[in-house]
Design a protein around this nucleic acid. Sequence first.
DNA 1: GTGAAAGCGCTAACAA
DNA 2: TTGTTAGCGCTTTCAC
Lengths: 345, 345
Amino acid sequence: MASPSEGTAKTVTIRDVAAAAEVSIGTASKALNGRGRMRTETRDRVLAAAERLGFRPNPLAQGLLAGRTYTVGLVTGDSFGRFSIPVMLGAEDALGAGKISVFMCDTRDDPIRERHYVERLLARRVEGIIVTGRRTEPRPGIGRDLPVPVVYAMTQSTDESDVSIIPDDEGGGALAARHLLATGRTRIGHVTGPHRFEAARRRARGLSTALDAAGLEPAGEVLFGQWSEEWGRQGADVLLHAAPDVDAIFCGSDQIARGVAETLRERGRRVPEDVALVGFDNWEPMALGCRPPLTTVDMNLGEIGRLAARHLLDAIAGTPTGGGVTIVPASLVLRESTRRAAPQG
Amino acid sequence: MASPSEGTAKTVTIRDVAAAAEVSIGTASKALNGRGRMRTETRDRVLAAAERLGFRPNPLAQGLLAGRTYTVGLVTGDSFGRFSIPVMLGAEDALGAGKISVFMCDTRDDPIRERHYVERLLARRVEGIIVTGRRTEPRPGIGRDLPVPVVYAMTQSTDESDVSIIPDDEGGGALAARHLLATGRTRIGHVTGPHRFEAARRRARGLSTALDAAGLEPAGEVLFGQWSEEWGRQGADVLLHAAPDVDAIFCGSDQIARGVAETLRERGRRVPEDVALVGFDNWEPMALGCRPPLTTVDMNLGEIGRLAARHLLDAIAGTPTGGGVTIVPASLVLRESTRRAAPQG
DNA sequence: GTGAAAGCGCTAACAA
DNA sequence: TTGTTAGCGCTTTCAC
């Protein structure tokens, strides 16, 4: 509540400020924007008047003149869900710093609504659009030859020349695998989501590649199923049956990992002593609620959002950023579920 | 100005439309807005030209003239988390229908940032502000005598005259209790979050009141603890010790309920046969992942958001909506965890 | 029925 | 150093 200027019920224009400071409107403008040369006394008088009246320049008017709006649109099909939110926050972070405000739109994954919102955003003269999603599957772009730059974050346009920022699913899988190998595990199983998901396939590929480099291969079959705990429970049983000597399980999501953890516990396998467990997503309520707390791959969604915003800002500034796909590295969050087994007695 | 080298489609002004249709700007404006009387032929000519050129009226210019922006701000301290998102979506729903766009801001629960964002929103001449939060605890308002109406959703201003829309924690507690009573349970325990949370206290009060009406009281003490699964696991043990004959447990959150469910299973109590379980939040990944799937109280967050938006729209329209707190009823989502025990065979 | 002109709040030339 | 003027894109009188 520092500024006493707050609380002006009526809108104060620069006209009012000029009048109060007994200068012309033009002079007031210059004083407020620190442009041109003028007596310090005059400038101070204007600034004081502005302060006193609680003057806020009207960005509509400024924008009208400058031909800019200092706004961008953020369109999500994920209903701002678990994945798009961190992305969104990262983006807002980067944009907010640049005085750019964000219009949010939720399309509910409906192309009609999406079309509608994009129209609306363009009508509002946003200077760019960020599209986020829940999956990394390539999707049709929101339109071609749009008058503003578009960046896809955590989703990918089928048009290869569009700018897309996506997580490193494959690298994440490899990261998990190498961590397990480093803690001495060699019989590593994999329970993951539906095969039709690019993300699931990539994570599995990352695992296989890393194991391959160590002369190993996944224990049992790679088990594709659902993105659910229930499947985690089932999958673990299948895996224990197919590869009873499994000593680590990498899961395609934290939810799956929780299901796996439960089954392991019920089958008398201790985590991490008998079987180490790695999840994917670093979805904290899941990962921390798990017994034991879950080591998991973090896709750095916030970074994806920040990067998307930065690309967009560059594009708005006219700097050619070069289209194409940018992959943001994943990182590993270590918790109890992969604590190195103490030497057995 | 946009870089001249940009291949972006050039913005079409009403001037261009007027020229193309060979009418004056004023006539073009009237034709486009369906105002005034004019020859159908003229109107059609203008509309055709606008269509052909892809004309979109510039809302900045329109707003400048009308003194409106058709935007509102949405400020959250919850980092658009689990609670504020459904609220947000509900709000966006109601606002979007009215052609109002939403600026989003995340304050990260930092008063400085909040102050900053509110300033920014006001500078942008939003016509109203919705404040959402993660808790229902009363919080200081975002400022007094703001030039635009403010509605608090899923949070509450300490200033009683402010408009706040909050969930019915007490009613939700009562709802859970009555449901359990209706399925024949009489020894009902309660494990919930920290006592310092208004929400936890209200839910407990709702339970007690409903039990009281049936001449009962909670089994064991009401156990206040944390909003975590871990506490759910511990709390269940405490409760089983204090009231071994407990036949139902109402939990202050779905996360707690999951913890409780785990302990119950490990102690050999079947859910729902031996002990029925009710959660709070209807947080689907938690409630559905639970074994068995959880009956839980839904706060109808979307409705809170919609209502907040509607209040705001009314206020913007100048309709006195009357300040104060509005409580949105909760509902119960039935799942396996309270299935009426079948007659034992 | 149509057009010319004023002005929304602001900035950037140019005059004084 | 300061004031005046001409718009940014649009809507809206009010003459014609």
